[in-house]
Every structure is written in C-alpha cells, then in structure tokens.
Design a protein around this nucleic acid. Sequence first.
DNA 1: ACAGCGGCTGAAAGTTGTCTGAGAAAGTAC
DNA 2: GTACTTTCTCAGACAACTTTCAGCCGCTGT
Lengths: 240, 240
Amino acid sequence: MGHMAAQTQPKQSEAKLLVVEDDANILELLSASLRFAGFDVSTATSGSAAVSAAKNASPDLVVLDVMLPDLDGFEVIRLMREGGQRTPVVFLTARDGTEDKIRGLTLGGDDYVTKPFSLEELTARIRAVLRRTSQGDEAPSRLVFADLELDEETHEVYRAGQRVQLSPTEFKLLRYLMLNANRVLSKAQILDHVWKYDFRGDDNIVESYISYLRRKVDNVQPRLIHTLRGVGYVLRKPAV
Amino acid sequence: MGHMAAQTQPKQSEAKLLVVEDDANILELLSASLRFAGFDVSTATSGSAAVSAAKNASPDLVVLDVMLPDLDGFEVIRLMREGGQRTPVVFLTARDGTEDKIRGLTLGGDDYVTKPFSLEELTARIRAVLRRTSQGDEAPSRLVFADLELDEETHEVYRAGQRVQLSPTEFKLLRYLMLNANRVLSKAQILDHVWKYDFRGDDNIVESYISYLRRKVDNVQPRLIHTLRGVGYVLRKPAV
DNA sequence: ACAGCGGCTGAAAGTTGTCTGAGAAAGTAC
DNA sequence: GTACTTTCTCAGACAACTTTCAGCCGCTGT
C-alpha cells in the first residue's frame, strides 16, 4: 500500500473560538496556534469587548483569561449568559495566590488551565469541552493508530492490547504524535507544543522522552516511532 | 477488555426546573451546573417574576430562594398554590431564623438546603424530591458499582456486603465518585461539586478525604479508587 | 577511514505531586 | 459544661516525574 500520506492539517472541527486575553504576546501565541490547529479564531483584549464579540460572532467556545483589565472572567460569562448564550468556556488562570480562591470553574462543563500552559494542554482541554458539550452525537475521545490506542478521557494507553502506564509528559507527547501521525515533527516543534511556553531547556529533553516512549509503547514490532536524522520524528507504519 | 466506558452524561431526568434567586452569581452557578446535570432550567430573579414563570413554564420543581427583593419565598409559594399549582419546592435559605419557618412548610414533600450549600447537596435533594413526588415510575435510590453499594435514602454504604459508616462529607464524596464512575475527576472538579461554594481552602482536603474513603471502603481487593497523578481520581475496576 | 555531528540512553540530581499522621478548630450530642 | 465526632490544616516522608549531563554509538560526508 506504499504511501498515501493524507497531508491534511490537523483539522479540529472548524469550531469557532473566541480568545480573550489582554497580554499581547500570549494572545498572538494562542491565536496563531489555534488557527493552525484548524479553529476559526476571533479575539478580544478586554472583558467588554469580549461580551460584544461573543454576541456578534456567537462562538462555539470561549478561551477566557480570568484576569482582565476591566471586567473579570466571571462577569464576562455572566453577561454573556444573561444574553441567553450558553457558550462553554476554557478559563486561563495564573498560578499565583489568587488561584486557590478561584472556584466554580469546572461547573457547567467548563474547564480551566493554569498559566504557564503548553499548547497541547490547552487544545486538549478545548477539545474535551467541545466533545462534552456538543450534545448527543459523537464522542471520539479515543485516538487509534495501528495497534496503539490512547483514550483522552480516561488517560488509558494500550499497545497491542496491553495496558501501558505513562507519565503526564509521556502521555502528552504520545498524544501529540498520534494527532500528527504521518507528519514529521521537529524537536523544536514538539518542544513548542508539548512543553509549557516558558520552558527554557534544551532539545535533548525531547530525545529523552522519545526514548522513554519507545521503551514503553514501541518495544514491539512493528516499530511506529521513527527518527529522521537531522529533521525530527514521525509516527508511522513502516513501509511495506 | 479495552473499552466499555458507558459514555453517558449524568443525564438526570430531563425534568423542568425553575430556579428563583436574586443573587446573579449564585443564579449563574446554579443554572450552569443544573443544566449540565441534565435538567431543563428556566430562571427568575424576583418573586413576582417567579409566579408568572411558574404559570407559563409549569416546571416539575422549583428551586426557590426564600429571601427575595419583592415577595418572599413563602408568598411566592402561596400565590402559586392559589393558582392551583402543586409544584414541589426545594427552598434555599440562610442559616438564620427563617430556617425554622421552612421546616413547617416542608411536610408536604418539599425540602430545603441552607446557604452556603454544595452542588451535590442540592442536586441530591432535587433528585430525592422528584423521586418522591413522581410516584409510580420510581427512580432507583441505590447506587451500585462493582461490590460497592450506596443508598441515597438511608445513607447506608456497603463494600463487599459489609456495612461501612461514613461521615457526611465522606458520603457526599463517595456518591459523587459513584455518580461519575469511570470518569476522571480533577481535584478542582471535586471541590466545586462536593464542597460548599464558599470553601476557600486548598485541594489537599480532597486528598485527605480520598484517603479516609480508601481506608473505609477501598481496603479490599480489587481497588476501585485510583489516582491519576497530575490529573485526578477515578472510580473504576482495575484494567483487565 | 576518520572526523564530526546528531541522536540515544543510563544515571544522577532536582523538582513536584500525593499520601497520611497529628492535631487544631468547629460543630454536635448529652 | 464535657465528651465526642467531624472538618480542615499542616508538614514530613515518600514516590514519581522531570531535567540535565556525559559518554557512546552510528551515520554522513569528505
């Protein structure tokens, strides 16, 4: 069957996101990468702008920094929902003292991630919330590639039917590889997506984790994780 | 092997609720989480609005704050019942003198919770009242998972046939775990649902109570309460 | 063939998350 | 009031996980 290499973009779901964040750097990071991930992204940099943007664009989900210059995140949500909108939310919160005092973020099917976060973490949450709230139909929480299975909800991983235990970073890396199966990923790219955006270490950590993953989930034939020397890594079935 | 993961939402009963509460934050808290719990929720923020909303929407149950800007809860109920409606009520009340006045009113199958309450507490009451009043097609008051049994009415808990004594919080936590069996619950999520909404402490209390529960109900094989490091807890049968 | 680069991996150090015992604080019963 | 239960906090121990480092191996190009 040689090659087919459906060179598709990750193509989430074409879901419409509204990203609300006052820090220009983070906003840029988010909107660029969420767009690349296949979302239809609009943005706002203040609470009041967010409320009206939500009215006009009626997004499927809002990514919302809780700390905003004018209104805080809770007010924004309250105003949005007073207008009859039932949009689910993924909150962004800082890990400072205020973090403990923030409660009620997981209600109504919403979720939150603390800064600094990794892009994989955020997109995983977004997808999970969309999955939960897009009522009724599909629930594809299980990624499958060859005889590798990864359940995003229960965090279970199987290789050739065998249950495998992964650490959090191993899990995130494997999910990233599976979401991008058949696509070559450079170490820099992996670092940017799987590690938190403030990580200042060396590429070598990716090599280390690839090594851990190989030992745990790629210790049987056929090998699925391949190194392209000087280029990166790719998850694919060996050529026949 | 692999999967079973009954991917159901908590899906209460599609019952129609009318929530009456003047505090915008609490109203948002209630409507978001009750909706997500599967109820069909409408809201009102004053006594007079409540009376007409009850006429129009004819809900199966009313969640009613006793302290309202115009009419108080008692008046609301009186007017509703003058109109011939015999809708059951769960009152929300502050822990003050009115608590006693409520007691007299709850003889007729109604119930009340005192502020601040936990969402588990409230939904448990709602479900209990609905169970009692929708006679005929009885809803089961007994939760069962593996050899764990929990009776919501008598508050009895059995593990492997053995009776186990739990404190109120232990009971609520276990019920929450059982209602969400096979679903991974973060500590934040547990805190948001099982603890009162004004709790300002830290996550560690969840760890403590998980520890208590394990000692009391998970001290035999197979272990059912599992830790997912960095993610949360899950009630499930061990991997096959 | 050899030098040099890139990648692999074992080991060790550093960090973080979870569990649990002890006890203070708050609540309840008698 | 006292005795008892329950809730909540704290800190130490421990285990799991992350990150770094250094040496080795093998590929690649000349």
